[in-house]
Each structure stands twice: as C-alpha cells, then as structure tokens.
C-alpha cells in the first residue's frame, strides 16, 4: 500500500489529537484561540502542498482562503445555513478560481511565480474591496447564523462547538493531506519538485500535475477560509489580504515544509507566541514576534516540525540500539 514508509501514521500520533480534543475541559478559556489555531493550521497545510511538495511558491494563497470565506458567508446570508455544505461551497469556489489561474502560475518559476501570485492576490483584494454589494467592502459580511453542525451541535457563545467543529475539519484535512502525500499523486508532486525533467521521462505531464496540485491546495485553503467565516460568523477583506498570505508563509517557515506536522506546529507556535507577546507587550509585540521568527529560522532552518521529525526518526534507532545491547548482554 502507499502508506508504507515514513509517511505512515503511527498509532501514538493520536495522543496530541486527544490532547487537542480535551482543550475545552483543560483550558476552556482558550477555545477561541484554539479555533484560530486549527483554521490557520489547515490553511498552512494547504500551502504546504504547494511549497513543501510541489515546489511552487505563492504570496497570494490568501486569495483562495478569502474566496472560501466569502462563499460560505454569502451562502449563509442567502439562507443556506447548513455548515458542511457551506464548507464544500467554499472549497469549490476556491478550486474553480484556482483552476482558472493555475495555468498562469505554473508557467513561471521562482521570483516570477511570487510576483504572479502576489499580483493575483492584490487584484482579487482590490476587486473585493470595490464589489461592496457582494462583499460588503471594508465592512465585510456579518449577521448570518448557521444551523447546528450535523443538526446536533448548535454554535454557542463560548465557542465550544466552533472549536470542536474546527478541530474535526482540521483532522479531516490532516488525514486527507497525509493520504495525498503518500499517494502516487503526492510522490509525483515531490518528484517534480526534485527533478521535473526526470518526471517527464517517466511519462508524467508535469504542468498538468502542478495545476492539479495547485487546485487541490486551493480547495483546502477555501475550506479553511469557509471555516473561519462560519466559526466567527463574519468575514472581512483581511481574509484575502497580502498580510494573510504572508502570515501563512511565516507559519510554514516556523513549522517547516514537506512534513504533515509542519503546518500544525507552526500555527500553534505562531498563534501562541502572538497571543502571549501581545499580552506581554501590547505596543511592541510585532517586533518581538519578528525577532522570535528570525531566531527560529536561524537556529532550526528546517522549522520546528523538522526537529519533531528528527526526534521521531531517532526513536526507532534508540529502540533498536537498546534491543541490540539487551541481546548482546544475553549472549554474554
């Protein structure tokens, strides 16, 4: 099967998820922050499909996040309040938009690709700002209600349902990401990142694969955006801003690219640091955040997720080494 090898999910990996699921009981005051982290982590996972796997770079990924958010909000404002279909709509709209622009993005590389994605993001932001009738302009969209999740869990004032919902969607996105990374499609994306010419000689239409990867990443970003709109029951222009694109790139730099925990670790550390530093130093917290980011990339260039991966990689070796010593001791 395709899940053999280092990308197989270890049973012990359930533990951090159980810890996250227990947050409402452990730290009920932090569920709102928890929701934000889950959404940012899902958004980072989507960008990691591009950056960590396909080798594409983007400074406009928030365009798809924002499109998903506006799609879900508009659907709810026009009377369709079922959350899961709202998520699907967010993903669909983002995916369709990505399919339109992807041929342009994958035509170029490096700096040109950064400029194209940045340009597309800025154009969409400006268009959304002008289309007040549709987007509410600077005021954004709010004042919509959502039905209970699965008809069972109504959204509450304290954000418990929102947190559970965001965590469940993140878990589903995480499983999807893991499965995709361990599929021939995921291998092909990484093959294209390493050696596009060799992939062509193996019969892979690289351009087509990259377009498909770009669309899949956009769908995931759209779902993350829709999730934000639904859990906060509002959407603002900021959701498709350059700032949002840069933020998720920072998260990936912190967490590391190409591994399934990079986005999660990055989002957790970034949001926790932001929360802590802004409380500690309300006026200068962004400066401290910048310093912390610089320190991280200088000390652990592969990101914090890379450290976790290396530690995880050492566990079996330690285990084997211990086993060898025991066996040797037995023989003597």
């Amino acid at each position: 099967m395709t899940t053999l090898g280092p990308r197989r999910v270890h049973p012990a990996e359930i533990l951090p998820w159980l810890a996250l699921a227990a947050l409402p009981w452990i730290a009920p005051d932090h569920v709102l922050l928890g929701s934000q982290i889950a959404i940012l982590a899902l958004f980072a996972l989507s960008l990691d499909l591009l950056v960590g796997h396909a080798g594409l770079v983007s400074l406009g990924h928030a365009a798809f996040f924002g499109l998903g958010a506006y799609a879900a909000a508009l659907l709810a404002l026009h009377g369709w309040s079922e959350p899961l279909t709202g998520l699907a709509a967010g993903g669909l709209v983002a995916g369709l938009a990505a399919a339109l622009v992807a041929p342009l993005v994958v035509r170029v590389h490096g700096l040109a690709q950064l400029m194209v994605t940045l340009g597309l993001g800025l154009m969409l932001h400006e268009a959304a700002s002008r289309a007040r009738v549709l987007t509410g302009g600077d005021d954004g969209l709010s004042g919509f209600d959502l039905s209970p999740v699965l008809g069972l869990f109504p959204f509450d004032l304290y954000g418990f349902t929102a947190y559970g919902y965001a965590l469940a969607v993140l878990a589903a996105g995480f499983l999807f990401y893991t499965r995709l990374a361990a599929s021939p499609f995921g291998y092909a994306l990484r093959g294209l990142k390493q050696n596009p010419a060799r992939m062509a000689a193996l019969g892979t239409d690289g351009r087509r694969r990259l377009i498909q990867g770009f669309v899949v990443a956009a769908v995931l970003a759209g779902i993350a955006g829709a999730l934000l709109a639904q859990t906060t029951q509002s959407v603002a222009l900021e959701s498709l801003s350059f700032h949002r694109s840069a933020e998720v790139l920072i998260v990936l730099c912190l967490g590391g690219t190409g591994g399934r925990y990079g986005g999660l670790v990055g989002a957790l550390v970034y949001m926790a640091a932001r929360d802590w530093l802004s409380a500690l130093s309300p006026h200068y917290w962004t400066g401290w955040l910048g310093a912390a980011m610089m320190l991280t990339v200088l000390v652990v260039p592969g990101g914090l997720g890379g450290v976790a991966r290396r530690l995880h990689g050492r566990l079996p070796r330690l285990h084997r080494a211990t086993g060898t010593r025991v066996a040797a001791g037995g023989e003597s």
Binding site: T2, L4, G5, P6, A182, P184, Y187, A188, R190, G191, Q194, N195, R198, M199, A201, L202, G203, T204
Partner: peptide, 22 residues
Amino acid sequence: WVPQERRIFRTLSVQENLEVAA
C-alpha cells in the same frame, strides 16, 4: 528508460520511487 545517471528521487523511499509514475 533507465538513464545512465539513474536519477532516482533521493528523498522518496524505494517504494515511493517505484510508485511515483506507475
């Protein structure tokens, strides 16, 4: 084609290398 330089994907596992373009 099996090229002279082999050009396997260094950061993919053996199985992933086999499945990459199956």
